[in-house]
Nucleic acid binder design. Structure first.
Lengths: 220, 220
DNA sequence: ACACCGGTTTACCGATCGGTCAATATCAAT
DNA sequence: ATTGATATTGACCGATCGGTAAACCGGTGT
């Protein structure tokens, strides 16, 4: 899993004790890795400090408390997520070209951050989900709704928000269910769901599904 | 949320201290409620014992440890889940009638156990997911794969397992994303996603999607 | 020389965690 | 009445948790 924290300039003189990189950055990076690997509850501040090669009190000094650090981690991921998708959904090309690009970018991003997706799924499930989760979902919805506006009604079972849920489910559920199918010995293909080959096949599937649905919608 | 533990016979004489119902049952019930409300990590054995009106040590006496109790809770839910779906997917009717029944049952079951769905999503995400999660997914996959066998290839982007992931995503993602859309003020409809009206609309949407896909598949 | 200040360390706190243990209550069978 | 298995209790354990307080350190300005 790649890291998403923007690297600091770090051109200043080396600190003698720490390896390198501003302390706050290293703490954030450690938080990213650990939260994604084990989830919020299963990670202690001590773990994070240790991974960052830093004293525990520094975590509180730099980020206030554990929750705030977690929020910062989520923030960073969502920024990267939204950015990746917005680039892919640029208004060039036909409707289905844009959808295909968006789907590919979505699958690629999650494949590059599988544990992050799990983290978000968990955070989403929380009753008091962090507000910026919804906020960051809003533009994604607007793009899809905008691209569908001319071919779907504004209410009812074929309204845009249903297709938004449906399309995102095509992507997300792949990462939550495919590993289970593998574990149960169902998906005979013995390859990592996030491998390039498996990913390409899923992309082709989702492209096919979206095309079939758009065909029907555009036919009126 | 309904409970799923099978009620004990309970015809025996009342115990003086406990209200009623076998102790082990009450512990399991308390575990169900709390795990579903807050997730595994956020619930302490003390919480469960207190909710059950019972001494903490009894939890360990009856179930060994916290993990084992959690496994029992998941087991109960999965049994109910599998049973509900297997009834719906009985082999009567046309292919799409069976799919529609299965979809309705799936949506209804999750709507009746929203917190459970969240719990499972979390458990699924764990690296060492409980094996019976996969085991309980297997029959569901077999039904869908069996019903599709004649119209889909056995490998590639249109293989059965892709449609399994896709169809289940249509249902599951509704419960994880719809609340977010509401919170973000996107889904103008101000109603609970699990309300009968909203549920009926989602059913209609999924029916439509599945029918369109089956139309294309059956057309060759 | 002094004070200031952000960063850092060390030691500590109270709370809570999962789990154990020996003592005890309950009840059916003898 | 005694026994023996099952249920239940309350006290306790070591570990770990998130978080705090005070001292300390190296630089910078005065």
């Amino acid at each position: 899993m790649r890291r998403l924290s923007s690297a600091p300039a770090s051109g200043t003189a080396e600190r003698p004790t720490a390896e390198r990189g501003a302390t706050a950055e290293r703490i954030l990076a450690a938080g990213e890795e650990l939260f994604c690997q084990r989830g919020f509850g299963a990670v202690s501040v001590r773990d994070i400090a240790e991974r960052a090669g830093v004293q525990k009190a520094l975590v509180f000094y730099h980020y206030g408390n554990k929750d705030a650090l977690f929020a910062r981690v989520l923030e960073g991921y969502y920024r990267a997520h939204t950015e990746a998708l917005s680039r892919a959904f640029a208004a060039e090309g036909t409707r289905r070209e844009r959808f295909h690009r968006l789907i590919d970018a979505y699958l690629d991003f999650i494949a590059g951050h599988v544990r992050y997706a799990v983290l978000v799924q968990r955070a989403v499930a929380e009753p008091e989900a962090h507000p910026f989760i919804g906020e960051n979902l809003a533009p994604l919805f607007e793009w899809i709704a905008g691209a569908l506006r001319e071919v779907v009604p504004s209410t009812g079972p074929l309204a845009a928000h249903h297709f938004f849920v449906t399309f995102s489910g095509l992507v997300i559920n792949y990462f939550t269910y495919a590993p289970l199918l593998r574990a149960a010995g169902i998906e005979h293909v013995d390859r990592d769901p996030a491998s390039p080959e498996a990913l390409a096949e899923r992309k082709a599937h989702v492209h096919w599904v979206v095309d079939v649905l758009l065909d029907r919608l555009e036919a009126g």
